[in-house]
Amino acid sequence: MRVLVINPNSSVAVTEGIAEALAPLGPQFEVVRQEDGPETIRTDDHVAEAAEPLAVRIAGAQADGFIIACFSDPGLDLARTRVSQPVVGAQEAAVLEACAQADRFGIIALSERAIPRHLKRIEALGCIDRLVAELPLRDVSAADSGRDPEVYRHVLALGEELRDRGAGAIVLGCAGMAQLAARLQDDLGVPVIDPVAAAGRLVLARLDVSS
């Protein structure tokens, strides 16, 4: 079995972090990046520009399932029109997992400008009433979001605020934050959902594979 995992940005560090996050789920994940993509998917234009290349790459690939490893789920709906295999988005998977684990959840976003597009997706999933809030970092890069100690302090503060406002689960709103999940969960005492691992679990479930 082969699951192709595409990081829509060009960051090598983020791509390596995605592979590390999926490794405990098994060897079936092949993680690649869009070499000509931006270093971070920041803007609505980045999301729109990524959609067609991602759909084309997925349509031309030989795999049993696919993951779009970006919290904005660029090209997810388009890709699903091109192939019959399961295509899973990181935001979709993380939000669904959060709703399964808690009555209410919160999200830590990479930047404030990402929040409106995230909210549209959450509303489409029928989960907007379960969202306590989505709170942003200070527009850091996807790579720095998972590696910079100062960024972690900000992530922790946002997580504490969401927890104290009633979030029973915290979703990390960027694939670059994947490696923070275990540490943050220990510090907060509530479930913290890495969107990459959530996408891995969801695609395996849709492929009916025990993980």
Rank of each mutant, 00 (worst) to 15 (best):
P8C: 08
E112I: 02
F66E: 01
I170L: 05
G189R: 03
I128F: 15
I122V: 15
G37V: 04
A169S: 05
V88M: 01
V14D: 05
Q85A: 11
A133F: 14
E97D: 14
A182L: 11
E160T: 06
A199N: 04
A63G: 06
D44T: 14
R130A: 15
R165Y: 01
Q179M: 13
E92F: 09
C174W: 00
A109W: 00
V190S: 03
G17R: 01
H118D: 10
T15E: 04
F66T: 00
I41M: 10
H154W: 07
D103T: 07
S72D: 14
A48K: 14
V192C: 00
L119N: 04
A114N: 12
D64R: 02
Q62P: 06
C99S: 14
D77S: 15
R165E: 04
A133Q: 13
A114Y: 02
E16W: 08
A109T: 00
S211I: 15
G37W: 02
L25S: 02
L22Y: 09
E39F: 14
R2W: 08
V196N: 06
I107P: 05
V47C: 06
L96Y: 04
P195D: 06
D187N: 01
D64Q: 07
P74Y: 09
A133K: 11
I115A: 00
L135P: 10
S111C: 06
N9V: 05
I67L: 08
A98I: 07
A61P: 09
V47A: 10
Q91V: 05
A90E: 08
N7T: 07
D148G: 09
V95P: 11
A167T: 00
R153L: 14
V32K: 06
I115W: 07
D64T: 00
R147P: 10
A178H: 06
P136I: 07
A79M: 04
G200I: 10
I108Q: 05
A69R: 04
E123H: 03
A199K: 00
L25R: 01
D194M: 05
A21T: 11
E97Y: 06
R121H: 08
A98W: 01
E20T: 13
R206W: 13
Q85H: 08
F29V: 14
E134D: 15
L125H: 04
V83A: 05
E52H: 02
D164I: 02
E52I: 04
V12A: 13
I18A: 02
V95N: 10
S211Y: 13
I67H: 05
R121N: 08
L202K: 13
R104D: 03
V32H: 09
T40H: 04
R80M: 11
A100S: 09
Q28D: 14
A199E: 03
T43S: 15
Q179F: 07
P195G: 07
A59D: 05
G126I: 11
D208A: 15
V155M: 03
C99M: 13
